[in-house]
Design a protein around this nucleic acid. Structure first.
Length: 268
DNA sequence: AAATATACCTGACTGC
DNA sequence: TGCAGTCAGGTATATT
């Protein structure tokens, strides 16, 4: 479930197990992901993990040899902490085995994810085209408003453009537009400054809330009990039949190849 | 330049 | 039980 909050919790989840540990071995079972895994990843023996953080939906792991691992979970990927003898499931493509035998395991059935090893993540082409982080103070200003003038694109498509703002996926785009009372098919340029300021606040708050709920996922990951978070219980429109506020039937439309959910009563 | 279609890949689910 | 079709939390690239 790699939404921004899941990527964030996955990152926070591996940190206590990974930081300041040396890599003992790396096992790659499948190289063919969105981009091939570079074979240099096999040469990380005795390299120490210095830092781990999130940028957009990318997990950045900085290493003592001055290289950075860039991991993207795609649609179906996960990065979890595993104990030494935990059985290898299908699609566990990469194991990073640490000095104490803890394993950072990358699993991705659909293979839309990525594991890259680069000199500097900031110079990576994917990172460079990333827009603003929605959890920053700057995002709460008039950023969306400014960048949406003259845009005829539907607001929901606009919110999902990673070169504008990162981390807002298909679920959060629908959910936040519902909370903001804005229909997903409105032209971006039709949204007022006031509406955008409110929408930005809602996006930030919703992502933060979900990260907190993802904390439960974190614990589950560590204890091996499961992988799903709690945020699905908080969804207002995504995958819903009836509006939780007014009980109107939820409408579904396709935008840019993705399903959008909205309530025609609550959203204008 | 902006909007849309397509491609990547596997698995779960639906309806016949 | 099986088969075909559809859909899925992402995003780069090609096409209009």
């Amino acid at each position: 479930m790699p939404e921004l909050p899941e990527v964030e919790t996955a990152t926070l989840g591996i940190k206590p197990y990974a930081l300041n540990k040396k890599i003992k071995d790396v096992v790659v079972r499948e190289y063919k992901l969105r981009e091939p895994i570079p074979k240099e990843i096999l040469d990380l023996k005795d390299v120490k993990i210095i830092k781990a953080f999130r940028r957009a939906k990318y997990i950045i792991i900085q290493l003592s040899n001055n290289k950075d691992l860039i991991i993207h979970l795609g649609m179906s990927g996960s990065l979890t902490v595993q104990k030494k003898d935990n059985p290898i499931k299908k699609h566990s493509h990469v194991d990073i085995i640490l000095e104490d035998e803890t394993i950072l395991r990358f699993n991705d059935p659909r293979k839309f994810g990525m594991v890259l090893l680069v000199d500097n993540y900031l110079e990576n082409k994917y990172i460079q085209k990333c827009g603003i982080e929605p959890l920053t103070d700057d995002f709460l200003k008039d950023y969306l408003f400014k960048n949406s003038r003259n845009r005829k694109m539907p607001i929901k498509t606009f919110l999902m453009k990673n070169d504008i703002v990162v981390g807002v996926g298909n679920i959060y785009a629908s959910e936040c537009l519902f909370k903001a009372g804005i229909r997903p098919d409105r032209e971006a340029k039709s949204i007022s400054k006031k509406e955008f300021l409110n929408l930005s606040k809602i996006i930030q708050q919703t992502l933060k809330d979900s990260i907190i709920k993802g904390g439960t996922t974190l614990k589950d990951h560590q204890s091996g009990l499961g992988e799903s978070g709690n945020f699905q219980n908080e969804l207002f429109v995504y995958g819903q039949d009836k509006c939780k506020v007014c009980n109107t039937d939820i409408d579904q439309i396709k935008q840019n190849g993705r399903t959008s959910f909205y309530c025609k009563t609550c959203q204008k």
